[in-house]
């Protein structure tokens, strides 16, 4: 099957076989605030792992360390066979083409139209060969989130949920192999939230991507999660699939499912 060969090729690019992201003993603190302590986790090829944790528990910090926006104090983060904290700027850029990042605050460029926002990663990532069809790619990405009519609007003219979807389109436009979603459905109505969750599933199936999803939205978690990580006190407190954790006897874990 052709999808299988594609899987094999992708796995070959990840040095340690099945694992696309391998986090070992990660620690990060801001002054006296020890956010992550000895956090270890492996993300497998083709899986969606959801990170659950209380507000301020360091979920965003975790994925910012993965993409190299924050430098960890200790530990290693292996993404597609490369240790992120040791990469130089050029290697980081090359790694970031393959890793999509959805910001919790969307981070759309206020001074640019929706079209320019989506073109930005395309044009900036030194990928001249794909540049012929920028327009086509922009429209395709917008159609995926159902917002093709907003292409010439400014982000300020859009509603909160629309902005979230544009940000999602911008994340997906480079067709990354790994996607880090920071609260993709927060602030959306249940129906749109469900659509986005299904879109995330479609992306996973269609392009065989792997993803780390941060979410408080249990409906979304139920749809997208292959595996769930519970982040408490800066460590990986529990791992399991939705049903396992839901029926867990541990109080701290159970809280999230009530």
């Amino acid at each position: 099957m052709s999808t299988q060969t594609a899987t094999v090729e992708k796995n070959a690019s990840a040095a340690n076989g099945d694992t696309v992201i391998s986090i070992q003993h990660l620690s990060k603190s801001f002054g006296e605030n020890h956010v992550l302590r000895d956090f270890s986790f492996d993300l497998k090829q083709g899986e969606n792992a959801v990170v659950l944790g209380k507000s301020g528990s360091g979920k965003s910090v975790l994925i910012k360390c993965i993409i190299g926006l924050l430098n960890p104090d200790k530990g290693s983060i292996n993404v597609l066979g490369q240790n992120v904290p040791e990469l130089n700027q050029e290697e980081l850029d090359r790694m970031r083409v393959k890793v999509g990042f959805l910001f919790q605050s969307n981070a759309l460029y206020d001074s640019m139209t929706v079209r320019e926002n989506l073109e930005f990663p395309l044009r900036r990532h030194w990928m001249k060969s794909t540049l012929d069809d920028v327009d086509g790619m922009v429209m395709e990405a917008l159609e995926n989130v159902g917002l093709s009519h907003t292409v010439d609007m400014m982000p300020a003219e859009l509603s909160g949920g629309m902005r979230k979807r544009i940000a999602l389109a911008r994340t997906l436009i480079l067709k990354p192999e790994i996607i880090l979603y920071d609260e993709p459905t927060t602030g959306l109505d249940p129906i749109t939230g469900k659509e986005i969750s299904n879109l995330m599933l479609d992306v996973q199936k269609k392009y065989n991507t792997s993803a780390i999803v941060i979410s408080h939205d249990m409906n979304c978690v139920k749809i997208v999660a292959n595996r769930i990580v519970v982040l408490i006190d800066g460590t990986c407190y529990a791992v399991g699939n939705y049903d396992e954790l839901k029926n867990s006897n541990d109080k701290k874990v159970k809280q999230f499912f009530e």
Binding site: K64, I67, D93, R96, A107, L108, F120
Partner: peptide, 9 residues
């Protein structure tokens, strides 16, 4: 937005 630029190469 500055972080987003950095992530976009």
């Amino acid at each position: 937005q500055i972080d987003a630029m950095e992530v976009s190469g």
